[in-house]
């Protein structure tokens, strides 16, 4: 198939067959070893008259193997970075979530790979992936200002969305003392508050 060849060439110079979700997972297991903590292939069926099954790989890995996991994905096919985000539940760790899509350009064939790992708040440092993909700069700069995660090797460290005079040590997505709950300006009261105070009839 001409299409497949085109995408295959992008990845590594020679044509190769697309792997299925199991094979990709095998590849990840092979390169990460014990650092691959848990994994799952999620299947979703879409469509009304013609059912299609889409595959997503969700893997929990050890923080130390993050860079290796990303490189493994880049070796399979040049991916598309869907998003980077992180979850802070208020504890000692931030759960980082990286989502890539590979084999885009194949009808119904894009497989999304989501990597999750715990990053301790005592050491919020990650290697950058901008050397592999220039476009990831936007994502990394956003995570840097929203969660306070530093990226080693990220060149442009200016604020992306927040104003330049944003106070130090305030990160909007954090749910600890670095959060921004004290900065919120309530422009009008919610219906709940108005009812609570008995101002509803006013």
């Amino acid at each position: 198939m001409a299409e497949a060849g085109e995408v295959g060439k992008r990845a590594g110079g020679e044509e190769r067959m697309n792997m299925n979700a199991e094979q990709i997972l095998e590849k990840l297991k092979e390169s990460l070893g014990n650092a691959l903590l848990t994994y799952e292939i999620k299947e979703y069926t879409m469509g009304v008259r013609r059912k299609r099954t889409l595959y997503e790989i969700w893997a929990e890995i050890d923080k130390s193997a993050f860079r290796k996991a990303v490189e493994t994905i880049f070796n399979i096919d040049y991916p598309h970075l869907h998003f980077i985000t992180g979850e802070d539940t208020g504890g000692d760790v931030i759960k980082m979530i990286y989502s890539f899509g590979i084999y885009h350009g194949h009808p119904g064939g894009e497989i999304s790979i989501t990597l999750k790992f715990d990053l301790p708040k005592s050491e919020l440092v990650l290697p950058t992936i901008t050397d592999l993909m220039i476009g990831a700069e936007t994502n990394e700069r956003e995570i840097r200002e929203m969660l306070g995660v530093e990226f080693e090797g990220l060149k442009n460290k200016r604020h992306l969305f927040l104003p330049d005079d944003w106070p130090e040590g305030k990160y909007p997505w954090r749910r600890d003392e670095h959060g921004v709950d004290d900065m919120v300006k309530y422009m009008h009261k919610s219906v709940k508050e108005i009812r609570k105070k008995g101002e509803g009839n006013a």
Partner: peptide, 15 residues
């Protein structure tokens, strides 16, 4: 006019 949907943001100073 009133903040509308965005009434409780950390980065907005309106109305």
């Amino acid at each position: 006019t009133s903040g509308g949907l965005f009434y409780d943001s950390y980065n907005l100073v309106g109305p």
